[in-house]
């Protein structure tokens, strides 16, 4: 299902920044449209290489809807390149290569319950899959979104979470690691929510994205509930450079995260997932 990238996957194409939304103090969402020609198609879960001219290139997951006219990327300012991208204003130009990588199993999951488990910025790579499932809601069983954040003020896409909460056909639970007494929602870690929500663990697909430690705890909680390993999908993150499996920077045991991932089925990586030497 992976969409074909540009004919020369190593040559960045020129894109223009459209709308810019400052999500959090250190996190920005950018809409990017090609300066010439149509935007390439993509599958939920794929990523692009974004090139801040003169600074460098980083892999960023696509976080917008597949039918939007532009790419949407949510970028957290954590280093020189992401800082340069996060500072871009509307009208600026940027280099884009992609889309690359594997996608969430939104077609395979049809007919089953779908459990999205996101932590922190991990909601961004899951958002295209959430859009897809909600746009095709009758094709799925129960839809559950579990989201964990550091605290209430660091909550990504807060307005959109509230919109999803209004829907009667989606169960959504949000939790934070710490809060003060003004917060009336859940406090605790996101894996702990899994045993509190209603879904059929024997006929579910779990799509998980967040910090790797959070994903390890989440996988453990999912398996304890009876979700089988070949229905648990994780979005992995490693230092990607070429994005087409040539350079080896993102090697993860016997696979490359850029071309065999970022979305990986848990049973394929179970042996190495928690191995610190990998």
């Amino acid at each position: 299902m992976a969409a074909a990238p540009y004919p020369d996957p190593l040559a960045p194409q020129l894109y223009r920044v459209g709308r810019v939304r400052r999500e959090l103090a250190d996190t920005t969402t950018l809409e990017l449209a090609p300066v010439t020609g149509p935007r390439p198609t993509f599958e939920p879960g794929q990523f692009n290489m974004l090139y801040a001219f003169g600074v460098g290139e980083i892999a960023i997951s696509i976080s917008g809807a597949a039918d939007a006219a532009h790419f949407v990327h949510t970028v957290r300012n954590v280093g020189a390149v992401s800082a340069a991208i996060a500072k871009l204003e509307a009208g600026a130009t940027i280099g884009v290569r992609g889309p690359f990588g594997t996608s969430w199993p939104v077609v395979a999951a049809q007919g089953a319950d779908v459990l999205f488990v996101a932590g922190g910025l991990g909601l961004a790579p899951l958002r295209p899959a959430i859009y897809h499932v909600l746009a095709n809601r009758p094709r799925y069983g129960r839809v559950v979104i579990l989201f964990g954040s550091r605290n209430p003020k660091d909550m990504l896409y807060r307005r959109e979470l509230e919109q999803w909460r209004q829907r009667l056909d989606v169960d959504i639970e949000v939790t934070v690691d710490h809060a003060d007494a003004d917060w009336h929602g859940n406090v605790g870690v996101v894996p702990a929510l899994i045993r509190r929500v209603a879904f059929d663990p024997h006929d579910s697909f779990a799509l998980v994205c967040g910090p790797e430690v959070m994903m390890r705890f989440t996988v453990s909680a999912l398996r304890a509930e009876g979700v089988v390993s070949d229905r648990i999908y994780l979005s992995m993150e490693r230092n990607m450079k070429c994005a087409i499996g040539l350079c080896g920077h993102c090697q993860f045991g016997p696979v490359f995260v850029c071309k065999d991932g970022p979305v990986m089925r848990f049973d394929k990586i179970a042996e190495i997932f928690a191995m610190r030497e990998i």
Binding site: V78, G119, G120, L121, R150, D154, V189, A192, G210, V213
Partner: peptide
Amino acid sequence: VQRLDATRLQLLDVYGKR
């Protein structure tokens, strides 16, 4: 045990900047 595990995860502050 579950609460101890959860506390460990909270202490790691996994959503913070590294």
